[in-house]
Design a protein around this nucleic acid. Structure first.
Length: 358
DNA sequence: AAACCGGGGGC
DNA sequence: GCCCCAGGTTT
């Protein structure tokens, strides 16, 4: 691939970068120690799915926990989806967990339990897009693949002073990444670029003085301003009221959300609809009409929690009440307070629980 | 193009 | 503490 600005070669970038990587590579649970045998594709895949939209520090414990529970892809494939969602709780983007489970089953059923070793075949698996297919091909199978994620986009935009805003700049950034990707050690190169982006070539306050490739970086004097981005949209605020309903056995009423959409398949504290542009409800009238009768006088306001999703802010008032009688639909359970840690509760609902129990 | 979450950094 | 932000896949 020709180099569009005709200045940066793979050698000028990859040699000092890989040298830095060999000396400073972070020891991570999913990374082979230097000189060790190749990583298990199952481990590479699991870590890459978790690392989508999620930081290394957050992923570490989840990764080790998943491998303890399911040491092989066959084990994960035969696990209950609800168990996988429970273990995934807190990582966010729960469609990833559903696709993870589906992908494990496809690997077992269609590929005899072995991950395919081409980008094209990997791309056909659920939850594996362009980035993850390239990363697995390079890291697990030693192939030359062009790996592009947000960190690498940033490093490349700065190296070449690309001033076109994202996402329009993506094709140019891909070509520039292709131009500096070496034939050998493409997997280590990709990991080195991502490490560099995470620790040195950071979005704000980049540490150019510590950068192993600062000598060949065209953008080092304007690094913090790159890459440029199209202006972001403002998020609206939605409000509602969540009602923490307890029975006399010390259990709380939880409901499973629909399989798809926001927090798909996760458990929730029942709440009123989340509506935009109104003040959060503070009376019983705002409560969701669950098929329960509440003990007279047991309804109390417990405070308010805030949470932000991809496309809106949420303010939920939290109320607490005692139940007298209930005829629960199938998607509802009574969860003993001691078992709250063992259900698929997303972070926003853990905030609700905390407010209700204070 | 829009939907999809949570944690961490900067102030 | 409170913003503000970055970040792949699917539809």
């Amino acid at each position: 691939m020709t180099n569009p600005n005709n200045s940066l070669t793979s050698e000028a970038v990859a040699v000092p970068l890989l040298d830095w990587y060999d000396r400073h590579a972070r020891r991570l649970p999913w990374r082979a120690p230097p000189g060790a045998s190749r990583m298990d594709p199952y481990h590479v895949w699991l870590s890459e799915i978790m690392l989508q939209q999620t930081t290394v520090a957050t992923v570490k414990d989840y990764f080790e926990r998943f491998l303890t529970l399911w040491p092989t892809v066959e084990g994960l494939a035969s696990a209950d989806l609800d168990r996988v969602l429970t273990e995934w709780a807190g990582l966010g983007y729960y469609a990833r967990a559903r696709n993870l489970h589906k992908c494990a089953q496809r690997v077992v059923e269609d590929h005899g339990g072995a991950f395919p070793d081409t980008e094209e075949a990997l791309l056909n698996l659920p939850g594996i897009g362009r980035y993850t297919a390239a990363a697995i091909a390079a890291i697990a199978f030693g192939q030359r693949a062009v790996v592009m994620d947000g960190n690498i986009e940033r490093v490349i935009a700065r190296l070449n002073t690309v001033e076109t805003p994202l996402p329009a700049a993506k094709p140019a950034l891909y070509a520039l990444t292709d131009a500096v990707t070496p034939d050998a050690r493409a997997g280590d190169f990709a990991q080195a670029m991502m490490d560099l982006g995470a620790t040195i070539c950071t979005p704000r306050k980049p540490r150019c003085m510590l950068c192993p490739i600062t000598a060949v970086c065209a953008g080092k004097d304007m690094a913090e301003t790159l890459p440029r981005r199209a202006p972001k949209k403002v998020k609206p605020t939605r409000t509602g009221m969540a009602v923490w309903i307890e029975n006399t056995n010390g259990a709380v009423l939880l409901r499973r959300r629909p399989e798809s959409g926001l927090l798909g398949g996760m458990m929730e504290v029942p709440s009123s609809p989340w509506t935009e542009g109104v003040e959060p409800p503070e009376t019983e009238e705002g409560a969701y009409g669950m098929p329960v009768s509440l003990a007279p006088g047991s309804f109390r306001m417990m405070g308010e929690i805030k949470h932000t999703f991809t496309h809106f802010h949420l303010r939920l008032t939290v109320a607490r009440a005692q139940v007298v009688d209930a005829d629960l639909p199938k998607d509802c359970i009574w969860c003993p307070l001691d078992n709250l840690g063992d259900v698929a509760l997303p972070t926003v609902m853990r905030k609700v629980a905390k407010a209700a129990l204070l």
